[in-house]
């Protein structure tokens, strides 16, 4: 099992974590900086191009990228031996680096939870991927939007923590 914590394996996992993270946060920012602000400018007859084609495809890569970013990140923290101390925000190890990366890990975990258990179920309702009464769709869309915005807000301190500390 020693090869799992070999320096090259640690690097590879970090690279996979970054690749997944780019896919995840890139699509999160696409939704918040591009898609949501411009939907109102699209004529109604053209809206299905976004709602029925682009958004479902983007949401597929978005939610799986979120899951894999968390998976690779947790593996990385385990490889480097600080998963417990970081999740305890460094209070067990009295280590500021563990606290810093721990904040980032918790923000990331909250964000991934929002993706899978709030944004995705509500987007399925809003986009008509699951059957709900028509009057339930605006509320579902609003909930998905606000949690997407919450994740955009958290992506600022999350990314700060992730790149602030480099523990090898």
């Amino acid at each position: 099992m020693g090869f799992l914590t070999d320096p090259y394996a640690v690097f590879l996992v970090r690279w996979f974590h970054v690749l997944s993270g780019i896919m995840w946060i890139g699509l999160l920012w696409y939704f918040n900086f591009v898609q949501i602000p411009n939907m109102a400018k699209i004529p109604d007859e053209q809206k299905p191009a976004i709602g029925k084609v682009i958004a479902p495809a983007a949401l597929f890569w978005f939610r799986w990228a979120a899951a894999f970013t968390i998976l690779w990140g947790l593996i990385q923290a385990w490889q480097l031996g600080y998963i417990g101390d970081a999740l305890a925000l460094g209070l067990t190890s009295k280590n500021a680096a563990h606290m810093s990366i721990g904040f980032g890990m918790w923000f990331g975990l909250i964000m991934a939870f929002n993706v899978w258990f709030v944004i995705w179920p509500n987007q399925q309702k809003a986009l008509g991927l699951v059957e709900v009464p028509a009057e339930a769709k605006p509320a579902a869309a609003r909930t998905a939007m606000l949690f997407s915005r919450t994740n955009t807000m958290l992506s600022v301190p999350m990314s700060y923590s992730m790149v602030a500390v480099h523990i090898t």
């Binding site: 918040n32 606290m99 807000m153 600022v156």
Partner: peptide, 30 residues
């Protein structure tokens, strides 16, 4: 009152504010 997260600009400003508080907590806790 309007939810601040409805504005993208306020969303980013809140994110920066959380970042500053977090950085100060990390710097001065230990």
């Amino acid at each position: 009152m309007k939810n601040p997260l409805e504005s993208l600009q306020n969303t980013i400003l809140l994110g920066i504010a959380i970042t500053i508080v977090m950085a100060l907590v990390v710097k001065y806790t230990f």
